[in-house]
Design a protein around this nucleic acid. Structure first.
Length: 420
RNA sequence: GUGGCCGUAGCUCAAUGGUAGAGCUCCAGGUUGUGGUCCUGGCUGUUGCGGGUUCGAGUCCCGUCGGUCACCCCA
């Protein structure tokens, strides 16, 4: 029996990789004062159909009717759940809210490398602040997440856009509000489609005097006025190198109202590793107008990140250092004389009480095999318990150097070493 | 959801339609207390699954499941 397509069994080595990722996510989110929350994996279908998510994501829902005939869906993303929770508890928290979540999400789509049907996503959201400082804070957090894992401006870039720029543009050319989504879709596909196709689509739209040339001219203009304050603040943080203003980024989700951005991998097979934007109306709409709370946030998926980590040398190196530091065993007790097993387990207990990760052979085994097991488990030290008792021979496995320590001083000796 | 490629031992892969193999891993040894190299030996398969063609199918055909790439879109 295999797991379903798009779902994964996580063996210990897979889970170690996941832990590396999620511990990094949490660490950096907390540096920005973000607190972790969670919500249900299963939600009412209605939460996603209130014209909030919109587009593609609705066709990818894992949806079904539960035993009580309720239409339900596994969450495809965290934002609607967050919006629902925040709308319900609005009065309980001082603003702004800095909330994050690491949770599994589900989308029914064809699996590919970096894309699964169940995946883990980091979500960071800043709620209750309308100004550009919140946008900057969120984007800085996103960049610091990436920097933490060893990615630099040559590995990843934040493509930044703003839907407000497009709203002005639409007005200028007399394109109706109802056609906004359709128009942004054309923009989204422009760089992937031949010009004739774009012209054709544009012609089908009601407008006054808009041409592909004018559209292109607008998109390639050297400065985008609405983005300037945000760019300035990011520059003040020293993060400007990561940013590439790009009006072709419009994002698929319907609820975005202002700034939108995507973190794009420059190395390897170009992919979006994270994405987000401002959604000032979602909470208002979801609560039927009861709560109005501007918000900005982003999501970052584990499947893409774990692939990306393998493609950038510095990122790979950092991950390996993590795994070395968190190996399942630091100290391996080699029981050379089976008669001393009681003393050995006593030592193991002392070492474990002191917080060290300790392993030893459970069966009588040749010394060579025990050293092999020590090596295998990633131990830094092997401690020989044998003829020398009550002296112990300690061997540093990386250098093969050996030293002698009395059994009473072992804990202290190892604690000193593990500090250094 | 659409199209292409792939599926053989735990892993990576061989095998002009004619007896299913190699390397790595793993296990056991290389005389009684030392691991990452070395030497010897050993285990492992309903060739993803189900049909069909054929004297004979891992190989050809159909279906199905899984993987992968592109499209779509995105985490």
């Amino acid at each position: 029996m295999k797991p379903l397509s798009g779902f994964k069994d996580l063996l210990p080595c897979d889970y170690a990789r996941r832990r590396y990722l999620t511990e990094g996510w949490r660490d950096i989110a907390r540096r920005y004062g973000f607190v972790e929350f969670d919500g249900p994996t299963l939600e009412s279908l209605e939460l996603y159909q209130k014209k909030n998510s919109g587009g593609e994501i609705l066709t990818q829902l894992y949806q079904f009717t539960d035993r009580g005939d309720r239409p339900v869906a596994l969450r495809p993303e965290m934002t609607p759940t967050l919006a629902r929770i925040v709308a319900a508890h609005d009065r309980e928290f001082a603003k702004p809210l800095r909330w994050f979540n690491v949770g599994n999400c589900f989308r029914y789509e064809r699996q590919q490398r970096g894309r699964l049907r169940e995946f883990l996503q980091l979500n960071c959201d800043l709620l209750g602040e309308r100004s550009v400082t919140a946008d900057a804070e969120i984007i800085a957090l996103l960049i610091d997440q990436l920097r933490h894992f060893g990615f630099g401006p040559n590995d990843v870039t934040i493509r930044l856009s703003d839907r407000l720029a497009w709203h002005d543009f639409l007005e200028q050319f007399g394109i109706k509000k109802e056609s906004t989504t359709e128009f942004l879709n054309i923009v989204d596909k422009m760089e992937r489609e031949p010009q004739e196709k774009t012209e054709e689509k544009l012609a089908a739209l009601e407008h006054s005097g808009l041409t592909v040339e004018k559209l292109r001219e607008f998109m390639t203009s050297p400065t985008i006025p609405v983005l300037e304050p945000l760019l300035e603040e990011l520059a003040a943080r020293g993060l400007r190198d990561f940013i590439k203003p790009d009006l072709s980024i419009v994002r698929g989700l319907a609820y975005y109202t202002g700034v939108v951005f995507e973190a794009f991998a420059l190395q390897g097979s170009l992919r979006a590793v994270a994405g987000g934007g401002r959604y000032d109306r979602l909470i208002h709409d979801l609560s039927n107008g009861a709560v109005t709370l501007p918000a900005v946030g982003f999501g970052m998926g584990d499947a893409v990140m774990l692939e990306f980590l393998k493609e950038v040398p510095l990122a790979t190196q950092r991950e390996e250092e993590f795994h070395a530091a968190t190996s399942s065993c630091q100290v391996y007790l080699v029981i050379a004389d089976e008669a001393l097993r009681p003393q050995a387990v006593g030592l193991a207990q002392q070492l474990r009480d002191a917080g060290l990760r300790v392993a030893f052979s459970l069966a009588s085994e040749r010394v060579g095999k025990q050293f092999s097991a020590a090596e295998n488990g990633g131990a830094s030290f092997a401690v020989m318990i044998g003829d020398e008792w009550p002296q112990l021979k300690i061997k540093r496995l990386s250098t093969r150097e050996e030293m002698s320590v009395p059994q009473g001083g072992l804990v202290e000796w190892l604690m000193d070493c593990s500090k250094g």
